[in-house]
């Protein structure tokens, strides 16, 4: 088997709520997993077991208390847990894509510019990036009259399609996906899932949260179960 694209070892994440008298909420403890190129790993487990927390740690948003998160970045393994901010930004630009559950809308910025942005960050010309954005929005069935409008007033499903277009416009080797189909009708959900399948065929390593068992059955190649932590003694 090839090298893993993601290798997590002994990960622990706990939130300390300083404003609530320093209450500690342990969420992940001694978690290890690996994800290989061409795999789609589904995180499963009841709410509150840390699926989203793990995804955010894999993107470098959450700072773990212990453990390592190695990702294959430009041919070598880099530990996200100890990487400096600029290294993490470089990893996000070239290696790890993140499709969050909700689009973060930016006032006045039209849908196609939001979608094109990751390509422009990677040095693509504005014109080529916008053309690619239009193609993605067309594939995701977003009506063309919406492309030039800021998504603030779009429906949940329309916003989610903009979000998916932005997440899939770059062919990242590693993709983190949180509930991609939650607000989509069956036709558009099918398109979203075909994007995930295409990414996997391109040999991307994918980690996702898919609450719908049918969705999981279709796109996931393996499951990783998270269990609630025993109450801290």
């Amino acid at each position: 088997m090839s090298e893993p694209a993601v290798l997590v070892e002994g990960l622990a994440k706990e939130f300390t709520l300083h404003l609530q008298g320093g209450v500690r909420l342990p969420v992940l403890r001694d978690l290890s997993l690996s994800v290989f190129p061409g795999e789609c790993l589904a995180l499963v487990g009841p709410s509150g077991t840390g699926k989203s927390t793990l995804l955010r740690a894999l993107y470098g948003t959450y700072v773990p208390q212990a453990g390592r998160i190695h990702v294959l970045h430009r041919g070598r393994m880099v530990d996200l847990a100890s990487a400096d901010p600029r290294q993490i930004l470089s990893i996000r630009r070239d290696t790890i894509g993140h499709v969050s559950q909700f689009l973060r809308v930016i006032p006045r910025v039209p849908a196609r510019a939001i979608v094109a942005e990751p390509l422009i960050h990677r040095g693509e010309s504005r014109q080529a990036a916008l053309r690619a954005a239009d193609a993605m929005l067309a594939r995701l069935n977003l009506p063309e009259r919406l492309w030039h409008l800021p998504p603030a007033t779009f429906s949940g499903g329309e916003q989610q399609r903009v979000n998916l277009a932005r997440g899939f416009i770059v062919h990242y080797p590693i993709l983190l996906i949180d509930e991609p189909t939650a607000s989509l009708d069956p036709v558009n959900a099918d398109i979203a899932l075909s994007l995930i399948e295409d990414a996997r065929k391109r040999n991307a390593a994918i980690v996702g949260i898919f609450h719908d068992p049918a969705v999981r059955l279709r796109v996931a190649t393996r499951e990783f179960a998270l269990a609630p932590l025993a109450e801290a003694a």
Partner: peptide
């Protein structure tokens, strides 16, 4: 730290406030 890290997972009591 990174913008999303400081805003989504602030560590210091004052940042959390």
């Amino acid at each position: 730290g990174l913008t999303d890290q400081v805003l989504d997972d602030p560590q210091h009591p004052y940042s959390q406030l």
